[in-house]
Amino acid sequence: MTEALPRRRFLIGAATGTAAVTVAGAFAAPDLAAAQPQETAPETKSAPKPETTAAAAETPEYIPEPMQVLTATEAAFVAAAADAMIPADDLSPSGSECGVVTYIDRQLAGAYGAGARMYRAGPFHAAVPGAGNQSPLPPLEFFRAGIKAANDWTKATHGKPLDGLEPAKIAEALKTMEAGKAEFASIGSRPFFNALLTMVMEGFFADPMYGGNRNMASWRMIGYPGLPATYADKIDAFRGKRYDVEPQSIADFS
């Protein structure tokens, strides 16, 4: 079924650090974005699909998707964080190249972002250990507030929003947030970081129909075969042996 899908276009050879630079640029604020497109190396865009290459070396052609709810500033922040959490290397393209920003944008634009399946009645109290998140904000607004707080913090400490920093500084800033040591003005840096990391990983590993995990890059990286997952005739035959197949997703059966 996979070969019957013309929408799958690949390019090769981009599975290196250069891809990360390209993508971060694509999500930068508009004035910067205008200066970036040439970095997408248009001549390689139309490169024909190679005969076969190692799955991990295939990079989905990166075309930035329009954002539904994230502002350019927010999308740039998410891209910078996603690319630090999932850096491009020979295991996979970067987080944003895999569609993680698109995934997060769509999730936050939909029912999840609006606070579906969340008890939202007051009164409200500060969170206490063991009792879970107590923020009255639905996820979209929680992320908006968190991104603003994080950018305000990096501006105060490093003079720039997160996505304006060098990759090593981005990673360092995220580590400080992860440890809860970034002093955000409003929201806790650790809960915000954890929520962000959770969403990035969802976007990297969820079925590609949600906008992330393009080309099933994460599934190729770990060797998860995806669908149809019918192994009654394989569990014995492959006991102790690598089950190495081209992964398939929901779209391949729809």
């Binding site: 999840y112 606070g115 399946r117 590993f205 969820a206 079925d207 995806g226 929901i250 729809s254």
Partner: peptide, 20 residues
């Protein structure tokens, strides 16, 4: 294929009680 959707069923917990 829809029943193999980890995000929908496992992460977003579609078949579970709605806390709202």
């Amino acid at each position: 294929p829809g029943i193999r959707d980890e995000l929908r069923f496992s992460v977003r917990q579609e078949l579970m009680q709605d806390p709202s």
